[in-house]
Every structure is written in C-alpha cells, then in structure tokens.
Write a protein that binds this DNA or RNA. Structure first.
Lengths: 230, 230
DNA sequence: CGCACAATTGAAAGTTATCAAACGTTGTGG
DNA sequence: CCACAACGTTTGATAACTTTCAATTGTGCG
C-alpha cells in the first residue's frame, strides 16, 4: 500500500487527490482545510463569489438552483469523493445544502489555481472530474426531458444502487438519505408523484423499504428495464 | 492586432486556441485537421470510441442522446467557437449531427493530450470551456425539470437572442436554423407544443417570424419575464 | 408544377400536478 | 416513558397541462 501523506482524506482514491505523486499530494494537502457540517446547513449560495472548491469526504449534499417564484431544481446529490464549486464568471452556479452530516475538504480557489500551474497533473485530474460530471449532466437531461415518472424513479434508484455496489459489491440495501421532496426536485416531479411511484414499485415487488432511509433492490433486472422503458 | 498563426480558424478568440501564445498556437494548429460537413451528416456516434475532439468554426450542429425506443433528447446546439467530443470511459457520450452546413477543426485526442502535457495553458483553457459547459447543462436541467412549455420556449429564444447580440449588438432578427422537432427534443416538448407556443408568442407580439429560419424579438423585456415565470 | 416534408391547428386522451386529508415518524418536554 | 407537536409520507379526488392522433396548410426542391 502506498504511503498517503494526505491524512485528512479517506477517499483519496476517488477524489481530487487521486493520481498525484507523494510530493504533489503533500503540497495539495497543505492547502486543504477540513470542515464539517450538519444536516440542513447551506455551504454555498448561488451567485456568491466562488472563493472555494470543495471535496466531499463523508456524508451527502444536494446542489440546487431556484426560479424567482421558488420552484427548485436539484442538479445533483454529492457523496464522498465528489467535488463542488465549479463556477462561471467567478460566481457559484448553484447552492449547496447538507443532506446528511458531512465532512468536506475545502480549497481556496486562487491557491488551488496557483498550485495547478505548478502541478499539471492536478489540473488534468480536475478536467477529468469535470468532464465526467458533464457526461452525467447530459444523462440527467435525457431523464428530465424524455422519461416518464416511473422511468425517472427507476433510473434514480438504479443509479444509487450501482453507486452502492461499487462501494460494497454484495449490498442489496441502498441508503436513501434524501426526502421525497428532494427526489422530486431532482427528477422534475412532485413529492406526491415520487411517493406514488415508490408505492407502485413496492407493489410490483421490484423494491422494498425495510427501514426508512433505505431501499432494497429485489429485482435489479426489472429495475434496469423500467429505467429506460424496455 | 496580434499575429494569428492559426489560419484555419476565424473564431480563435472564442475557441480552444484562445489564450495561447504564438508558439503554442502554432503547435496546436499543426494538429488541427480542417473538415467540412453537410446538413444531416452524422459526425460522431454515441458509444463510439472517442478518437477526436472537435471545434466548430462555422455552421451549426446538434448533440443528442437516444432511449432504446427512439425517444431523443438534444443536449445542446453547437455554434462557431463551441467544442465537442467530451467522453467518459473513452467513448462519446452523445451523437452529433449537422444542422447547418459547417466546418470543424478536428484534433486527434491522443495527440492533443500529449500537447496538453507540454502546454498547460491548453489544458487550462479546455478546463474552462468544460466548466462553462457544465454550468450551462445545469441551467438546462432547471429548464427541463421545472419550467412550463411557455417558459421553456421563451428561455430558448432568449438564449439564442443573447448569443446573437454578442456577435452583433444591433441585431433584432435571430437565426433559427433548427426544426420545430429539434427544438422540442431540446426542450422536452413535442413538435406540436413548440409550434403552438411560438404561435402564442407571435399573437402576444413578443416575437415575429419575418422569414422561415429567423425570429425577430419585438419585446426583449417581456421575453425575459416569460422565460422565468415572473 | 407538383411532390415530399415541415409546420400549424384542432379535438380528445393521458399523465402528472394540485388540493386535501389521513397516516407515520421523529424529537422534545412534561 | 409517554404524549404531543411538527414534519414528512402516503393516498385519494379532481384539474390542468401537455401529448397524442388527425387533418390542413405552408415551404423547399427536383
């Protein structure tokens, strides 16, 4: 096992720090400020100056944008290894709120940019992460624009399930820390429609809800089919 | 006016080539292969190996993803200065088809990656472009998930109008090279709903259609209001 | 000029949203 | 430890918006 000088971060293999040599990792870790936050806390506000870039090390967050009348679109849920803080015109493009008590690695953006000039690997890594994020955003556009309520909910559960499999290949019970209302705002549906769709999937036997905050996947193949309308 | 060694590209101030010194620009231009394509041609196919990165120099394209049953989501329209070819797992994440006869600057991905190792400014520039793209994708998620048909169409026209203003600050007539069906697949609507909404906006006097393929903006402020439901 | 295709308009149907009420869960204070 | 309040979830009935299906009109091109 290679020596890991960044003692602040237990998810470095999937984070910004990945693919850096020991020296560079050390320089990056010197910039990092560890921060923890409680459920409900707002970490960044849309349109505020984008002073920091964050890396999630534990817990979960939601990113969202608002319309003037309060309608909300959640653009993503963040889990350990994910980053946030991408900006346009030096302002955040979304707000971020904690869904599940979390810890974050915070980097000053100017300092990080300075380090990136010295360590091209770091910029390369960030480019990869942002590119992946963009591909996922396009997948989400397909969901929002063209899928039915059932396909949306099935896709959402499937994505969480696959993420969970990557961390624990034997798991069948998937954590579901966000509310129905959050899920609705992520999928472009109302709370009620999300709830009804969960009920329908339970009735079909595709999923069960053993405990609040978890989904159990009984029929992964059927879930897959439902998620793209096969 | 600075010397521009990349004679292939008339939009370099907004493209990949921007912010490069003369030497680096020369090295980049040596990698570029100029290519032109006719309306209807498919330039890249979703899930094909991502061998190239493209920069649009003239014309227009659409990027799209398909569901198994043929439902289509257009994830973006590309105009001069835009790039395409971002990938995940070394495969394209979308297909690209020409909307209006276009010219492209094509870069071999491995060669470009090699050059990026030598020229960090280039990678920096690409990171900026991808980051902006991500912000726009999140804005589109808000549109797809939470806006009404009228808000969607008004937002779409407004975005085209603003892009057109940037190129020609006095223009009130905006080119609209894509079909109603393309617009529908971009906004998560049917052709019929798009057409009906255009008719309603004409009736209100917000827009006119002087010639096929163009929209004239009569009331930019009202358009702005309609686009976010004020 | 006429054919093929795109755009528009109309009528009916369907999916999802809205409004409303009941049920569960969680956390707190008596 | 229980009771209650507050909040989130579920379920039902109705309404609205958008889609679907169908027909007509308009446009571009051979």
């Amino acid at each position: 096992m290679p020596f890991k000088p960044c003692d602040k971060c237990s998810v470095s293999e999937m984070a910004l720090c990945n693919a850096l040599g020991c020296d560079d990792l050390k320089r990056l870790s010197e910039l990092a400020f560890e921060q923890s936050a409680q459920k409900g806390e707002t970490i960044i506000n849309e349109a505020d100056p984008a002073s920091y870039l964050f890396n999630v090390t534990s817990g979960a967050l939601k990113l969202y944008k608002l319309l003037p009348d309060g309608r909300r679109q959640i653009t993503g849920f963040l889990f350990p290894g994910d980053f946030m803080g991408i900006a346009m015109n030096d302002c955040y493009a979304y707000s971020a709120e904690v869904v599940e008590n979390c810890t974050l690695c915070r980097f000053s953006r100017p300092k990080l940019e300075k380090l990136m000039r010295d360590v091209p690997d770091l910029e390369h890594r960030l480019l990869n992460m942002v590119s992946n994020e963009l591909v996922l955003a396009q997948e989400q556009m397909l969901l929002l624009g063209r899928k039915t309520a059932q396909e949306k909910v099935a896709s959402f559960i499937k994505t969480l399930y696959e993420r969970s499999l990557r961390r624990n290949p034997l798991a069948t019970s998937v954590p579901l820390p966000m509310s129905r209302s959050d899920i609705g705002d992520y999928l472009g549906l109302t709370t009620e429609t999300v709830s009804r769709t969960f009920s329908a999937l339970k009735k079909n036997g595709v999923i069960s809800i053993p405990d609040a905050g978890f989904v159990q996947i009984n029929d992964p193949d059927e879930l897959e089919d439902l998620s793209s309308g096969c």
